[in-house]
Amino acid sequence: MRILVIEDTILLGEAIADRLQKLGHGTDLIGNGRQAADWLRHQQVDLIILDLNLPGLNGDALLAELRQRRNVTPVLVLTARNGIDDRIKLLDLGADDYLAKPFDFGELEARVRALLRRQQGYASDISKHGNLVFNRTAKTVTINGEPCTLVNREFRLLEIFLGALERVMSKEEITDKLFNADETPSSNTIELYVARLRKKLAGSSVHIQTLRGLGYVAHVQPSENTP
């Protein structure tokens, strides 16, 4: 999934972005609130991680501006403010969750998973699709109870498809979700990833169909091995 980190403390921002990239997310980092607001007029992401003390435009104002634009992207706020009134204000402005500084990266990852899961309509980190079980927390996939080994980008690509079942997704949309703005994948990169994922999902209930000129659509079909 594609995540925007808005944090002006360079070391912290880079640490968060690096951690998320290692988990397979496409991650962008911006350190100025005004620049982030302008960037979001032309780019779509699946989650925003937002610091409050920003140059150009502070986080409170940026959050309010996004919601006024009817931008409903989930926002996780990083804040050193621990007062109950501050937290109420953030939630009223439209924050989906907040994390007090200093924080543990394990908790950050858990909150990211929860917000992305909620956005995709799943109540649990474990979802079953026919004979395929997808575990976001453990980053595992099983088919008929047997492990299916996926590298980070393959795992995230499957997550993207499972979050958009029965919906046609163009190569451009998948690229935007899988890579950050600084990466320049070649025109056939998505085709290669989809081909590799299809091969590994052979025998599963999840099928990825190519629609020439349009992109891809994922379906869950009954499997003869499904109980």
Rank of each mutant, 00 (worst) to 15 (best):
D38M: 07
G56R: 07
T210D: 13
N135L: 05
K200A: 04
H219A: 08
R212Y: 06
V5I: 06
I160F: 09
E107V: 13
V112S: 12
R117L: 03
L211R: 14
T175W: 01
D125F: 11
P185E: 05
I48L: 10
V194I: 15
G24M: 11
R167V: 11
T140V: 11
N32F: 06
T175V: 12
R196Q: 14
D51R: 07
E146Y: 11
V194N: 02
L29K: 02
L165G: 05
L29S: 01
R87G: 01
L132N: 13
S170F: 06
Q21S: 13
R67L: 05
L76E: 00
N225Y: 06
K101L: 04
V45W: 03
G31I: 06
G94C: 11
R156Q: 15
K89F: 01
L57W: 09
D60A: 00
D86F: 04
G163D: 13
A110T: 11
A17S: 14
L91V: 14
G83E: 14
N32A: 05
V194S: 01
R111I: 08
G106M: 05
E14K: 07
Q35L: 14
R196M: 13
R70E: 12
L158C: 14
G33A: 09
E173I: 11
N180P: 08
D97Q: 13
A36E: 07
H219M: 07
Q221F: 06
Q209N: 13
D28A: 12
Q44K: 12
A64P: 04
G121E: 10
F155Q: 06
A218D: 04
Y122F: 15
R156F: 00
G56L: 06
F103V: 09
E65Q: 14
T79A: 03
Q68P: 00
F134M: 05
H207V: 15
N71C: 11
L214R: 15
N131L: 02
R118V: 08
L201I: 04
G130Q: 05
R69P: 02
V112L: 08
S170M: 08
V5K: 02
E154A: 14
V75M: 01
L11T: 08
R69A: 15
K200G: 05
L93S: 04
A138V: 03
P147Y: 10
L63W: 09
F161N: 00
T79V: 10
T175N: 05
Q21D: 13
Y216C: 06
R136E: 13
F103C: 10
L150Y: 10
E224F: 02
L47Y: 01
A195K: 14
T27P: 03
T226R: 11
T175I: 07
L52H: 08
R81P: 00
L50P: 02
G203L: 08
R87T: 02
A61N: 11
E159D: 15
N71E: 12
D96H: 13
L52Q: 07
